[in-house]
Design a binder for these strands. Structure first.
Lengths: 345, 345
DNA sequence: TTTTTTATTGCAATCGTTTGCGTCAACGTT
DNA sequence: AACGTTGACGCAAACGATTGCAATAAAAAA
């Protein structure tokens, strides 16, 4: 049988005082004699008293819990973000309740509902690929619920967004490929409705423009799923069908880039001599494959940490959400490895 | 300003009935007139009423929340486990609150404390590498708290454990290497205090014995950290120092195995012709590297799902913890890829 | 018409904690 | 001796929902 936790009432009864006294004694409120405080604390320790956070939540209409909504846990980038969130939340005394949407809108909706029921103090969200309409978030914002979006951020009024500089990251990656002498650069793009995909594509285009290279729309291919299989198939079909063979691939993510690498190898092309490849996200495996994959590192941990700091600051009213800059952009870092270097520095 | 949620009282006041009536009407209790039910439900919908789960928790001493304690989120295997946990918990109407210990015992302790404060209904835990003593868990079990351990499971009375058959997985992997003609097989072992490490080592030893190969203790090396860097360094020093060069590596995990692969390549050895390599866990990158890495697949999602099913069954008293088998072992699957095949099938 | 039944609803306690306000005795001041 | 202070504590309401036990009125039975 489950042994119930000792409560303030138990302590009060045992000591023949009122619960108010016990409560105040435990918190070192003035107006309680040292003698009483001593006795209360002693008994509390002996009974292994633990305040009931649920009762506290009810009283204060605060739960010291934040809700995290992400597309998928099994995703290196998101798992690093979670790690950052967890660290900050823990150190500031908050709990994290987590749900993954599996990229489904209805899961997103219902997760929000149960979190609201659970009186969470704020949301941290990266929305699903299915989400094209943001009314469910706007409504929450209007009602004054603190929300901080990260990575996948919506363009709606009053939203507070933490993201990486996808544009710059892509721009850097493609510029790097160009300076390495690659010029017919394929972009394995992401889903068009995600702002991050748009930004990365924009960075790709601008880098080409910047070096005076004409943009060939045939070289921009959407990879909606984002697996290495998909990248492999798409790359193969490009290699088979394009008259002008491409000589480099910039992947919207690392999985697609690896797919491209495998397809190139299978086609007898050497990486990086014949084909240069750069990915995005810097998954752990980038440095473990042969040749090692250059990639744009996103500061996942940092993003989670920053987003959480910001959310908690808003919750604790340390900052006014109206006054906070509506977007915080974190720097990416291009990690140049073997897959994209054919000139000696 | 945050707009407060409508409560039962709000509905009651508006309709000039008591809160009891509203409560019963909402739940279709008998003894409430259809007319009243209609009006209550209508207004509830209009006010966007959402039951306050906190109040409910307080009343019922149940929170419909389970606590998950894991070493690290950023770990492919654990993230798949989380995914499985999340799925089952969600579908059965439970919330998941998550903490990572970062392999620290004190984090483990304090996570348990805050979870207890939050009246969670049960624990799902995979303990930290620092944990050598299980009193904090035994105490909880004695008090009747439902706990299900997964992957890293303790050997304490009454514990309910879900694990993979590490022994068999290791046995299969090493047997496979032997039948491929490798015989001087190194085992890059895990931390000695983890049962999973012990089991994998036992599988390694028994496989060798089974084929009549003498066990050379020099070939069993502990890799306490478990990164690819560590694996690489250790492998290099083995290659440099052993008189009898090893011809295969069985890694306690994939990272160590990849490290071994890189070190071998760096030493001019060919994989799999000169050296065979098998890892453990089947991380995503296994199929993306060259040569692709053979590995023992652990059913992470399934493990998370099973453990959660079991925990919720206990919580909901669908099963009696005394009667449940104290251990559930899931099958592993050896995925043979290029890194360990030098004989044609 | 009186009594019994039935349908519908309200009261109040409960879960554990906090907190504004009141109480009461002991003490100090003039 | 009468008064004001002060120190130490208790009462009771509140947070939101549930639920056993009345309570009330209307309908049915006698």
């Amino acid at each position: 049988m489950k042994i119930e936790q000792a409560t303030i009432k138990d302590i009060a009864r045992e000591l023949n005082v009122s619960s108010s006294t016990v409560s105040r004694a435990l918190k070192d409120y003035p107006g309680i004699s040292d003698e009483t405080k001593r006795k209360v604390k002693e008994l509390a320790k002996k009974l292994n008293y633990r305040p009931n956070a649920i009762a506290l939540s009810l009283r204060k209409s605060r739960s010291f819990t934040i809700g995290v909504i992400i597309p998928e846990v099994v995703h290196f980038f998101f798992s690093t973000v979670i790690s950052g969130i967890e660290e900050v939340a823990y150190s500031r005394g908050y709990n994290v309740i987590l749900t993954q949407t599996n990229e489904k809108l209805d899961r997103e909706q219902s997760s929000i509902d149960t979190m609201l029921s659970n009186q969470i103090d704020g949301f941290l969200v990266s929305y699903s690929k299915e989400t094209k309409d943001f009314n469910h978030f706007s409504r929450l914002l209007d009602q004054g619920y603190p929300i901080v979006f990260f990575d996948r951020v919506p363009e709606i009024p009053n939203a507070i967004n933490v993201m990486v500089d996808d544009y710059q990251g892509a721009f850097d990656a493609v510029s790097h490929l160009i300076t390495q002498g690659y010029s017919r650069i394929v972009h394995l793009a992401g889903p068009k409705n995600l702002k991050i995909s748009q930004e990365r594509e924009r960075g790709y285009r601008d880098a080409l423009k910047n070096y005076g290279i004409a943009i060939n729309e045939e070289l921009i291919v959407e990879c909606p799923i984002g697996t290495s299989d998909e990248g492999q198939k798409i790359t193969k079909s490009l290699l088979d069908n394009l008259k002008q063979k491409p000589d480099a691939f910039f992947g919207n993510n690392d999985m697609a880039a690896v797919g491209a690498m495998l397809a190139c190898k299978a086609a007898g092309l050497r990486v990086p001599e014949d084909v240069g490849i750069v990915g995005f996200s810097n998954w752990q495996f980038c440095s473990m494959i042969e040749p090692s994959l250059s990639s744009v590192a996103q500061p996942g941990f940092n993003m989670g940490a920053k987003a959480t700091e910001m959310l908690l600051d808003i919750i604790e009213k340390k900052v006014n959400p109206e006054e906070v800059k509506d977007a915080l952009t974190l720097e990416t870092e291009l990690l140049v490895r073997k897959s994209s270097v054919r000139l000696r520095g």
